[in-house]
Amino acid sequence: MNQASLTQIFINACLVNNFVLAYFLGICPFLGVSGKIDTASKMGGAVTFVMLISSMAAYGINSLLIAINAPFLQLISYIVVIASTVQLVEMMVKKMSPSLFRALGIFLPLITTNCAILGLALFQTNKGYDFIQSIVYALGAGAGFTLALVLIAGFREQLELAEVPEVIRGTVLTLIVAGILSLAFMGFSGLGS
């Protein structure tokens, strides 16, 4: 039972508790594909899309599991459903919009092992959100993920041209930038109340 308003939930998921910068969720793709703004925003789009669908699915499963009183199956059913959702989405997108598929195609399989998706499903259950709240939470989290990814990509594109000592290049530099961004995002705290 959670009475948080929808705007509160959205701002909270997107800015205050940004999935990447405060919960470290989805770091793997974050380090991998955040090199270019273009790929970063597409990846963000794909993740948001899958988040939205798996959030709805997770809500359904959780209601079912509560009904049959089997909470211990939560994790295993979430992960199975997310994996199959990703497959399903991949097939659907391929059929319905080949151009979108070409843009998102290579990212979709990566999303199965993206902790942000499973994290979203688990957090929304912990917080006891209802159906509408869950959808808004998924949208906020997706928007936050995309924002963080695009911001980092922007930094990295600029840093390509800068002269950086060789030992710092790559992951180290990305982590430092992410740390600074995470500090900056702390400034959003309190917005949600």
């Binding site: 030992v167 710092i168 992951t171 982590l175 740390g179």
Partner: peptide
């Protein structure tokens, strides 16, 4: 202990490893 500290500490460790490797 803030999230940012996690990024910085890991960056420092990786940097150390890079230096050793070099």
């Amino acid at each position: 202990i803030l999230p940012a500290g996690g990024f910085f500490t890991l960056a420092a460790w990786l940097l150390l490893f890079n230096v050793i490797k070099k």
